[in-house]
Simulated scan of single mutants.
Amino acid sequence: MDLPLVVGVDGSEPSLRAVDWAADEAALRGVPLRLVYASLWERYEGDSLAEDLTDDLDGRTEQVTAEAVVRVAARRAALRHPDVEVSTDVLPEEPESALVREGRNACALVLGHRGRSGLVEMLLGSVGLSVAAHADCPVIVLRGGHDNRVRAGVHGRVVVGVGDKGTDSAALRFAVREARLRGATLEAVRAWRCPAHETTDHPLLVGEPARLHELQAAETLERALEDVPAELELRRRTAEGPARGVLLAASHEADLLVVGARRTPGHIGLQLGRVAHAVLHHAACPVAVVPERP
């Protein structure tokens, strides 16, 4: 049986837009869609509800049940893709722990970039950050001005940051699959920097240390991509600068940005790294964080 694609919903507009996107993704993958509402509170009171929920409740927004949240989300997914199997669940617990546990039996987790917390829109909330840092499966956070669609992306491009894992990179394998599903170009990016202590003032040697690091980056990129299917349209690119800055710039012309996050057995704190942390907060497109095992 195929593992489901799990979406965390909370009644906010970003979470329902995540349902749209995930329904497309589930249809492409041919997997079930599972919609989960996780909260210690049975009812929500506030004014940050999605329009669909307000309509469902005839304009009454003072009290919203968890069942109403998942009912509206399921109806929205079914209208978008009637052929996708949809299931729902309400879990009376903290969303961080519930979604991480759900990820153990999911092909991926999908989250809106911001829920009903009232946080600044540019920053990812604590739930998304914690889930991305601890989940055993890829976590896709729908940042930026995505158009709620997977197949017909604006740019037709999936960007992946290439680290030191080479052909053993789970993030690269994930990016290859996503690009193939979408019929998109895969752009593999390797960032490089020339340490300040390697520079020289000799006029005949200016630029040589930098050129060496650039060549090493290109060689690393080639080795990592040697098993990419020949039929996939592939772009290779090296860029000077910190990896997080290079990838943030690339996100402005991508429909999906894929990065790896190292997982260390026995480690309790956040396991993201600076690059994944930065793109989750500031990328201009959806971000997939893929766990990398030692």
Rank of each mutant, 00 (worst) to 15 (best):
E85G: 02
P14L: 03
V162D: 12
H134W: 03
R237D: 05
A179F: 11
D136Y: 08
T167M: 06
C194K: 00
L256S: 01
I268G: 01
G266R: 04
L53D: 03
C137G: 04
H134P: 05
T199P: 01
W41C: 05
R80C: 11
E222A: 15
L3W: 00
A250N: 04
V120P: 06
G46A: 05
V6D: 02
L5C: 08
V120R: 03
S97C: 01
S48A: 02
V159P: 07
L225M: 10
H267L: 15
E233Q: 11
V9H: 04
L172Q: 07
V150N: 09
A249M: 01
V154H: 11
G156D: 11
L49I: 05
P203Q: 08
R149T: 10
H202D: 15
E51Q: 14
G59H: 06
A135V: 04
P286R: 12
A243P: 14
S12T: 05
S97D: 07
A23M: 03
H81D: 02
S87F: 05
A230K: 13
L111D: 08
R151T: 14
V19H: 07
M122D: 09
D55S: 06
R104Q: 11
S87G: 13
R60P: 04
A77N: 07
R151K: 10
A284N: 02
P82R: 00
G145S: 09
G207M: 05
A276G: 15
L49V: 12
A152T: 10
G46Q: 03
S251P: 09
A210S: 12
D58S: 14
E51M: 13
G144H: 10
T88C: 11
A26W: 14
A135Y: 08
H202A: 12
H213D: 06
V100G: 07
D24V: 09
Q216P: 00
P32T: 01
H202Q: 12
